[in-house]
Design a protein around this nucleic acid. Structure first.
Lengths: 215, 215, 215, 215
DNA sequence: TATGAATGAGGCTTCATTCAT
DNA sequence: GATGAATGAAGCCTCATTCAT
C-alpha cells in the first residue's frame, strides 16, 4: 500500500487516506472519461477500468452512477472560478470583464475536459448543472452589483443583471463551442471574438473612460 | 388505405403518397416524443408506437435512428426562421433585432417541442445541430451585413459579426432555458430580460437614433 | 420454420402460431427449471437458454421475470384440479375426499415439478401463490358445502369449512414434503399416511356409513 | 469495552464474554431482520449494520451467511416449545392438544418474527428447517404415544402418528398464514378456526369423555 | 412496403466473501 | 478479535437493428 505522490515521494497511506485516494481515483477517471468521450460513454465499467479498481468498488464510494456525474461539474466549476479570479486584475470593471472572458478560454485550454463536462451536463447531470449555474449566476451578479456601486454601470436593475449574466454565460458557451476546437485540439480564441465581445459589452453595459474604449 | 385529411375529406392515396404519408407520421411522432421526453427517450419502439406503425417500417424510411434524429432540428429550425421573419418589421435595424429576439420567444410558446429539440440536439443529433447552427449563422450574418450597409452598425468586421451572432444565439439559448419555463408550462419572457437585451445591443452593437435608445 | 409437433408431423407455423410456440417454449423451460432447481435459480438467462431463445426474446413475451413466475403455479394448479377431478368417483363424500387426497399424490408423481413450484411460490411468486390458494380454497369449500347438503357432514359452518380446507391443504403440503421424496425421486405415499388421514377425516369431519369406517 | 447489561449495571467484559456478546448481537440482529423483512433481505451488510458491528466481524463468528441463517429457526423453535409446554395443563389429551394449538397462536403474537422465520426457512435455510421439523416431530410423536398409553387414543400406529404430526404442523402453518395477519398486524385466531380444529381432532383422533366433546 | 418477433451486446447494481491493517 | 474497503461474478433489463413472412 504505497503510493507515489505528486511530489514524487513514496508514502504509506492509512486507511482513511487510502479511502480518499480511491475515491479520488474514481473521480479523476470519470473526469477524464466524460471529458474525452462524454457522459453517455461514461459507464461505470469504463470509469472503474480507467481508475484501476473493481466495479463493485465504485459503489463503496458513490450511491450510484448519477451521483458521481452530478458532482463532476460543480467541482470543476469551482476550479474555474478560482482560476479566473486569479487572473482578474484591479483595473476598471469593463477591463476586468474582458479579463474574465479571456481567462475563461484560458481555462478551457488548461482543462480540456471542462467544456464537454459543462455542455453535456444539462442533460446528463441536470442536478449538477443547475448547481453550477446557480453558483456562477450568484457570483457573477455580485460582481456586476459591485461594478454598479463603483459607478462603472448605470441604468441596470438587479433583475436585469441576472439576464445579463445569462447572456454572458450563453455567449461563452456558444463561442467556445464554435471557436475553441480545431481538428480535435483546443485552440486559443481568435482575436475577432475578443474584440467583438469587448465592443459589445464596453459599449452595451459599462460606462468606460473615453480613452479606454476599444483597446 | 383511406386517410382522413385535415380538410376532413376521405381520400384514397396512391403508392407514392402513402409512402410519404407513412414517413411523415414517423417524423411527426418523433417530433412529439423528442419534444416532450427528449432524445434519450426516443427509442425506435416508442416512436413507431406513437406513429402507429411497426418497428420494421421505420427502416423502410430511414437508414437508422440517428438519421431521423438529425433531420428533426433543421426542419423545425426553418419553421422558426419563417416565423420570425414574418414578425420582423421594417423599422431601423436595432428595433428589428428586438423584434427578432421577441419573436424567438413567441415561437417557443407556439412550438413547445422546439426548445428541447434544440437544446439536446447538440449531443444527440450533432450533425443536425451543426446544420442548424450553420443555417442560423449564415442567415444572421447576412442580416447584420445589411444593417451595416444601411449605416446602422459601425466598426464591426465580418468575422466579428460571426462572433456576435454566436453571442446572440447563446443568449437566446441560456435565457430561454432560464426564463421560459415555470411550473412545467412555457411562459412569456419577463420584461427585465427584454430590457436588458435591448440596452445591451442597442448600445453595444447598433448606432441608434437618439430618441429611440432605451424604449 | 418447421416444427416437429408431438404427433410427429412437421408443420409450417404462421406468425401467430410461432409467437405462441415461442412463449410456450419459455413457459415450459421455466416450469422445468423452477421444478428442478427452484425459483431462486430460475434466472432469465437460464430459462431462455433452456428454451433455446435469446435473452431479449423473453421480454417480447413477458414484461419481466416476475410476471412469468407468477403465472407458473396458477396454470399448473388448474392442471391439478382437472387431474384430481377425473379421479374422483361418485361414492359418498368421505371416500371422495380420500380419493382426492390420493390423487393429489398421484399428480405429484405425474408432474414432479409441481411440488417445488407450489412450495416456493409463497415467497418467490406471492401473487401467483395467492391466486392459486384462492382457486383451491373456493373450489374446496364448494365441495364441502355440497357434502353437507347431502348429509355427509354435520355441525360445520361455512367459516369452519374454510379453516378445514386450510388444514387439508396444509396437510398435503407437509405430508408431501415429508413422504414424497426419497433419494431424489418422487415416490408414492406410504400406507400409514393414507390410513392416518382417512381415520382423521372420516371420524373427524364426515358422517360415515358404519361399515365403511376405517377401510 | 463497557456494556450496559439488562440489569442496568455497567460491566467490564472479559475476552470470552465480549466474544459471546458480539455473536449474540449478530444473532439478535438477524432475528430482527429476517423476522421483519425476510431472509432474502437479510444481507450480511444489513445484519451487521443492525448489530452495530463491521461486516468483517461477521466472519469471525460464522463461517458464512448460511450458517447463521440455519441456526435461527431451531433456536426460536425451542423457545416456542418451552412457551407451549408452559401453557399446557393436565387435562385429558384432547384438551391438551387444543391448548397446544391455541398456545401456538399465542406464541406467534408474542414473537412476531417467528412466523416469517418459520415459513421462509424451508427455502432459505433448509438445514435449519429440517432440524426444526425433526425437533418438533420427535417431541410431538412422544406426546401422542403418551396419550395412547393413557388410553386417550386408539387405533393409531407409531407410523401413523408421524403422519398425524405432519398434518398438525401443516395445519398450523397454513392456518396461521391465512388467519394471523390482518392489515400488517398479528391478530388472534378467529373462533371458527379453533372450533373447526377442535371438532376435527377430538372426533378424528382422540377418544373423548362424552361430556367434553365440542366444548 | 409493412410487419413484429428475435437477437445479443451492454448497462447498472447487489452482495457474499476476503484480507491488510 | 475488529475493521471496512475491495473484489468480481451474476442478475435483470433495454434497445437498435435484422429478417422471414
Amino acid at each position: 500500500m504505497t503510493e507515489l505522490t505528486s511530489s514524487g515521494k513514496v508514502t504509506k497511506l492509512n486507511r482513511v487516506e487510502r479511502n480518499a485516494w480511491t475515491k479520488q481515483k474514481i473521480f479523476d477517471a470519470a473526469t477524464r472519461i466524460v471529458g474525452r468521450y462524454g457522459y453517455a460513454e461514461a459507464s461505470v465499467a469504463r470509469i472503474t477500468e480507467q481508475a484501476g479498481v473493481a466495479q463493485g468498488t465504485f459503489y463503496n464510494h458513490f450511491d450510484n452512477r448519477q451521483e458521481l456525474l452530478d458532482q463532476l461539474l460543480p467541482k470543476i466549476g469551482q476550479d474555474m472560478v478560482r482560476f479566473i479570479r486569479e487572473r482578474t486584475g484591479t483595473a476598471h470593471a469593463a477591463r476586468q470583464e474582458i479579463e474574465r472572458f479571456s481567462a475563461f478560454f484560458d481555462f478551457i485550454r488548461e482543462v480540456p475536459e471542462f467544456l464537454r463536462i459543462l455542455n453535456e451536463a444539462e442533460f446528463f447531470a441536470p442536478n449538477g448543472y443547475q448547481k453550477h449555474l446557480d453558483n456562477m449566476s450568484t457570483a457573477y451578479v455580485r460582481i456586476l452589483k459591485r461594478a454598479r456601486l463603483a459607478g462603472a454601470i448605470n441604468d441596470f436593475s438587479d433583475e436585469e443583471f441576472e439576464a445579463i449574466v445569462h447572456i454572458f454565460m450563453g455567449a461563452r458557451g456558444y463561442l467556445s463551442r464554435r471557436y475553441s476546437f480545431h481538428d480535435g485540439a483546443v485552440t486559443s480564441v481568435p482575436d475577432q471574438v475578443m474584440s467583438a465581445y469587448r465592443k459589445l459589452i464596453t459599449r452595451g453595459l459599462f460606462t468606460v473612460p473615453e480613452d479606454d474604449d476599444g483597446h
